[in-house]
Write a protein that binds this DNA or RNA. Structure first.
Length: 760
RNA sequence: GGGCGCAUAGCUCAGCGGUAGAGCACCUCCCUUACAAGGAGGUGGUCGCAGGUUCGAUCCCUGCUGCGCCCACCA
């Protein structure tokens, strides 16, 4: 409900852009959705109008999502929904933030920050990704006082005016004589020191690097550790700032800088290269290269590093606690824990939670404005918890009046919003009624399970564990179940840019939710699953089969009150079912839902293909007496368990079939227990039954006869124990195979079945 | 560069010390009183490669190869 994707969607959908300087227009109405991109000029709207458009569109999207989830048969309490942008979530999020602030776990700092120039916001470490990006190595001459050149190599020549030092490794023989001296940058004529630092790599490029404020995170490290000056030239819009930085004082340098002012980074690069070429300081031609560059995962331009004031939540200080929590948490599958550990150990800074965006939970903070009109960031004004949620851009802080906003001696609201994860990380607190419903909270927190995909371990999962640690000194849940992704049929990740996304609603219509769930359940925890319509067809067939089998089993009169299981095959089937119930229950408790489904399914096909066929005649028999009663009772017992076993996977067909003979819902019926056969496993009986009936069928199939065709005799040889078992189900075998004579002969260790078909 | 996972039938995947399994696909057959949007039967594999442990390895160990993912590196 909040975050950059929503903002981008609103921008594209309505063709608008948020312009915070515009006043709110109460008469503003939502523009017609754009049919195609760029069909009309982008309209600037005020922040509040923009947020209203976001709310409008997310409300529509929520309906679509709920429809999909309901259609899919998601079993949740629909009376307890919330939105992460709603008042309740905002209140929880702001309260948790204020608590962190009071404990010193949240703080603000002015620091170089990774910045997306497209979205114009800071981004966090967890939201970075590397992408291959084309560039070129430029070999550039700096100048010593004696006129000798010092060559550096850079892929970002446009940052030349932001250069604050040259850096080489302290052990590098080539530059020993230069350390402590200064050199002059080409074109811009700025004198910069040559400094030694171990992070410089001798083998890379020329072995000596140009440190700029800021080209990359190594620059930030050097700048911080070597206390270098700041010469910022890239603005938050990704363009070269209008004014040259301090230190770029020479007339020629300023003239050159003027040529760059206002240009994009890309254009500035071309211009600087032109200037270098003209001055003779470009050594050779640029050499094309492709190297990984940091991007915001949702952005389309490389990140810049700009200095700005941001809010952070401490995480580095809690690394050990986080690792310990990772140990306590039960991971499904267990190996996914490695990603978490890897992430926690690799944290290189505190969590940056402020975003310079609009549609999100605002920071509940104002600042006094001093007599010179400057905000005093070091002494924020905070609301009481009972006032939450607040929007500092429209609510007035305690002790002030609205007409003091932005005035000297007055106040300003913090303009930033929180990162989406800063609120989503409180999912358990929001849902469990933290600080608002103590009884519910006591019953539900920590929660049992976090189900999520593995790609957001470093964001959602990590942040949730961190917040529960900081706020509740506990895990947020006991188990984490990591699902894989749905891949397209070529096993590529589905993504909008590739255009290979399949939305679920059409599938639900085409194959039925049961079929789609059947396919999805075949994706084991942690394993990616290729999109496979074939599996959905099988799921659909399974659901149909369950309906048909239920119809058949229920077509017989209800067994009499005193009916008992008297026949060996019925007893054996029920005892096998008991085993399956036990295994399935165990698998589900271990989060092995795929194994659970496999076991139920395997039994169910035996039940349909062999058992039903074998007892059919006996169940039909009007004068069958106890044997018929036994079959009819066994059918109902088995059906009751099977419908409940399948219910979590195939909620619709099971509910339908259950309704044919029960009043309540199958989904609130008790989970089946392994007591259908009242103890004792006669599994070998059904194995032998299947073997025998298969042999009879094979004989008919080989002879290209119908399955109903009569059999003159079946002669079974083998060990006495097996023959005894087979004898006990002889009546069913004869009826199902249409067998005239069934003979047994104890002989040898191996079971042999000879089938003599009747003459045609 | 570090880590994790995967490699088994044409395809999708189970199995994991004791003679290789399922479904799909393919082939053959069957309108049979739950089901033809069905059903029955069948063909098909030196379980990635090389070593080791073991009486015995698809399974355990080591190395290699290939694929995927996560992280790091970004002068």
């Amino acid at each position: 409900d909040n975050g950059l994707p929503t903002e981008r969607r609103v921008q594209n959908y309505y063709g608008v852009r948020c312009e915070p300087s515009l006043p709110y227009d109460p008469d503003f109405t939502a523009p017609e959705p754009m049919v195609k991109k760029g069909e009309r000029p982008v309209q600037n709207v005020s922040r509040r109008n923009f947020i209203e458009l976001c709310e409008l569109l997310t409300a529509e999207d929520e309906k679509a999502f709920e429809q999909t989830w309901r259609h899919l048969g998601l079993s949740v309490d629909w009376s307890r929904t919330y939105t992460t942008i709603g008042r309740h979530a905002q209140r929880v999020s702001q309260r948790a933030f204020l608590r962190l602030l009071a404990k010193g776990e949240a703080y603000q700092a002015e620091a170089p920050t990774l910045w997306d120039v497209g979205f114009r916001t800071a981004v966090a470490q967890a939201e970075l990704e590397d992408r291959e990006h084309a560039g070129a190595w430029h070999r550039i001459s700096f100048h010593r006082h004696d006129g000798q050149p010092v060559h550096i190599e850079t892929t970002r020549p446009e940052l030349l005016p932001a250069c604050v030092a040259l850096i080489a490794h302290p052990d590098d023989e080539r530059y020993q004589g230069l350390f402590g001296q200064t050199v002059t940058s080409p074109v811009f004529g700025v004198e910069v020191p040559v400094v030694a630092h171990p992070a410089a790599e001798m083998e890379r490029g020329a072995g000596i690097a140009m440190c700029c404020t800021f080209g990359d995170l190594t620059d930030v490290q050097w700048w911080r550790e070597l206390k270098l000056p700041t010469r910022t030239i890239v603005g938050r819009d990704g363009r070269i700032l209008a004014e040259p930085p301090a230190g770029l004082d020479g007339e020629q340098g300023r003239k050159a800088y003027a040529e760059l002012a206002g240009a994009t980074v890309h254009t500035a690069r071309e211009r600087v290269v032109g200037m270098l070429r003209e001055s003779g300081d470009l050594d050779g031609e640029p050499k094309k290269t492709v190297r990984p560059v940091k991007f915001y995962e949702k952005g389309d331009k490389p990140l810049e590093i700009v200095s700005s004031r941001q809010w952070f939540i401490r995480s580095i200080a809690h690394q050990d606690d986080m690792l310990r929590r990772g140990e306590e948490l039960r991971w499904h599958p267990a190996y996914m824990k490695a990603r978490y550990d890897d992430w926690v150990r690799g944290l290189n800074g505190d969590w940056l939670v402020s975003r310079q965006r609009f549609f999100g939970v605002p920071f509940p903070v104002w600042y006094p404005v001093d007599s010179a009109g400057e905000p005093a960031y070091e002494s924020p004004i905070l609301p009481g918890e009972d006032q939450l949620p607040v929007d500092p851009s429209s609510d007035t802080p305690p002790g002030y009046t609205e007409d003091q906003r932005g005035k000297p001696g007055g106040f300003v609201g913090d303009p930033d919003i929180m990162d989406t994860w800063a609120t989503s990380s409180l999912t358990p607190q929001i849902a469990c009624g933290w600080e608002e419903d103590p009884e519910l909270f006591a019953q539900t927190f920590p929660m049992d399970l976090r189900p999520q995909a593995h790609d957001i371990i470093r964001t959602w999962l990590f942040a949730t564990v961190l917040r529960a640690q900081l706020e509740n000194d506990s895990l947020p849940w006991y188990h984490a179940a990591l699902s894989g992704w749905i891949l397209d049929p070529d096993r590529k990740k589905m993504s909008k840019s590739k255009g290979n996304v399949v939305t679920p609603l059409a599938l639900l219509e085409q194959f039925s939710p049961d079929a789609v769930r059947y396919w999805a359940a075949n994706g084991r925890p942690g394993t990616d699953t290729a999109f496979d319509q074939g599996q959905m067809k099988i799921g659909r067939r399974l659901a149909t089969k369950l309906l048909n089998a239920s119809k058949f089993a229920l077509s017989f009169p209800e067994p009499a009150a005193g009916a008992e299981i008297t026949e060996a095959l019925d007893y054996a089937m029920l005892s096998a079912l008991d085993v399956v119930i036990g295994q399935t229950t165990e698998a589900l408790e271990a989060f092995e839902y795929t194994s659970a489904l496999e076991r139920i399914e395997r039994f169910f096909w035996f039940f349909c293909d062999d058992y039903l066929e074998l007892i059919k005649q006996r169940a039909y028999d009007e004068d069958g007496g106890a044997a018929t009663q036994s079959a009819r009772l066994a059918l109902r017992k088995a059906l009751s368990s099977l419908q409940r076993l399948f219910a979590p996977f195939l909620p619709y067909c099971t509910e339908e079939a259950w309704s044919w003979w029960h009043t309540g819902s199958v989904h609130t019926a008790g989970w089946p227990t392994a007591d259908n056969a009242a103890g004792g496993d006669r599994g070998e009986v059904i194995t032998l039954a299947s073997t025998a009936i298969s042999a009879i069928r094979k004989a008919k199939s080989d002879a290209k006869r119908s399955m109903r065709s009569p059999v003159e005799s079946v002669r079974i040889q083998g060990p006495a124990a097996q023959l005894e078992a087979l004898t006990s189900i002889g009546g069913d075998l004869r009826a199902a195979g249409n067998v005239e004579a069934l003979e047994f002969a104890a002989d040898g260790e191996e079971l042999r079945i000879e089938v003599q078909l009747a003459e045609v």
